[in-house]
Structures are given as structure tokens and as C-alpha cells.
């Protein structure tokens, strides 16, 4: 068995809301799992259990209060929980991919450029991927701000799937897609796995989950566990 490419050990996080009188909201506690190249791990559990927060912590978007988030990267191991901003940026550039739940549209930037990135070297590949995801050609040059929810999500998926990165984090990638496009996403995930990409996904759709998951980790809300 290969070494895991991603390992979480005792990862915990609590939000402190200063504007609500310092209210403390535990998000996740003692999360431990590991993912190997070519494996798709799905985080299961009810809404509000902290599944998206876990993905955001792995990506370095949310801070991690305690525990370790180890990612193998360029021959070394980086602990995202303690990494400096520059290290996290380097990790994102060459190791960690992320498909967020919602696309953050940028004014004036065409869909194809959102997917290909600001440098634009991957433009042809971006067009191909958008077509596969049934985003029609006439939309490629249009900024996605005016797109429907499903179209925006497909642009977002294309952006996340285009670069060839060894770890991919998927936050409800199929939530607002129809059956045909859900099937495309399942196919894309399978291709990534065959190329040895490790995937951590949050998926509510049972059919999609059954189709992509190799491992399921159950995340329960902290309040019910405490009770």
C-alpha cells in the first residue's frame, strides 16, 4: 500500500464570534483520517456537522486550532495547520485543488478565463472541459456572473478539475446539477482517480456518493456527540 498523500490527525476547530459577545461555536473536534493517491474519501454526515469546514481547513482557507494536516508536497511534508501563507500558496499552486460550493465571479472575466486562470496557457483544455460539462460555446466568452446556478457550478468544476494536481477537494460539486451533468462529474472523478489523484469530497447525493466513494468518513455534529 502506498503512503497517504494527505493525513489529518486530531484536527479541531472552534469559531469565536466576537460580535456575539465572544460566543464560541465548536466546528469540528478530533478529526482523523488519511487519503492515499487514487482514493476518493467522502465526508458524510448531516448539514452543519462541519464537513465543509474540514475541506476549508485542508485548503488553508480556515485556520486549524489544533491537530495536524499533513500534505505530501514536492518531496516533503507540509503541515497546513502551521504553514506560513507562502507555503500554503505554493501548496495550492502545485498540490492542492479545490472546488468550492459556489463560484466567486469576478467582473469582466470570461468563463473560459475563469477556468484557464489569469495566465491563460490552458485555454484550449479549458474549452474542451467546458464543452464536456455542457457549457455551450456561446457562454465561454461571457463573465459567469449572469449564469444560472448550475452553469456557474459547472464553470467552477471545470476550474477545479483543469489543473493536474495530486489532491482535489470537492465541496458538493453536484448540488445544483441535473442528472446528465452529475454523470459527467462522476466520470471526471473516476478519471482523476485513475491518474492517482487523491480526492476528499462532500457529497449529499446518495447516487453520486455510491459511484465515487472508496472510503466514507462519518462526521457528526458536535452538539449531538457532546449530549
Amino acid at each position: 500500500m502506498s503512503q497517504p498523500i494527505l493525513e489529518l490527525a486530531d484536527v479541531s476547530k472552534t469559531f469565536t464570534l466576537h460580535l456575539q459577545g465572544g460566543l464560541r461555536l465548536p466546528a469540528v473536534s478530533d478529526v482523523t483520517f488519511s487519503v492515499h493517491p487514487g482514493e476518493c474519501l467522502v465526508l458524510a454526515g448531516p448539514s452543519g456537522a462541519g464537513k465543509s469546514s474540514i475541506l476549508k481547513m485542508i485548503y488553508g482557507n480556515y485556520r486549524c486550532d489544533s491537530g495536524r494536516i499533513l500534505v505530501r508536497h514536492d518531496g516533503t511534508t507540509v503541515d497546513v495547520a502551521r504553514a506560513a501563507p507562502r507555503e500554503i500558496l505554493a501548496l495550492r499552486a502545485s498540490t492542492l485543488g479545490y472546488v468550492s460550493q459556489f463560484l466567486r465571479a469576478i467582473p469582466r472575466v470570461a468563463a473560459v478565463d475563469v477556468v484557464a486562470g489569469v495566465q491563460g496557457e490552458m485555454r484550449d483544455a479549458a474549452v474542451t472541459l467546458l464543452r464536456r460539462l455542457n457549457v455551450s460555446d456561446r457562454l465561454h466568452a461571457v463573465p459567469p456572473a449572469t449564469f444560472s446556478g448550475g452553469e456557474q457550478q459547472r464553470v467552477n468544476i471545470a476550474r477545479g478539475f483543469l489543473p493536474d494536481l495530486p489532491v482535489l477537494l470537492l465541496d458538493e460539486p453536484t448540488a445544483s446539477l441535473d442528472a446528465r451533468n452529475r454523470a459527467v462529474v462522476v466520470e471526471l472523478v473516476a478519471e482523476k482517480k485513475r491518474r492517482g489523484v487523491a480526492i476528499v469530497a462532500v457529497v449529499h447525493d446518495d447516487e453520486v456518493r455510491a459511484a465515487i466513494a472508496d472510503t466514507i468518513v462519518d462526521i457528526q455534529p458536535l452538539t449531538s456527540r457532546a449530549a
Binding site: 469559531f15 476549508k56 488553508g60 482557507n61 480556515y62 485556520r63 501563507p85 500554503i88 500558496l89
Partner: peptide, 9 residues
């Protein structure tokens, strides 16, 4: 810190 981290968390 990292821009998206400081703004989102």
C-alpha cells in the same frame, strides 16, 4: 495572513 483566510475566518 493569507488573504482568503483572514477574510473568511
Amino acid at each position: 495572513g493569507l488573504t482568503d483566510q483572514v477574510l473568511d475566518d
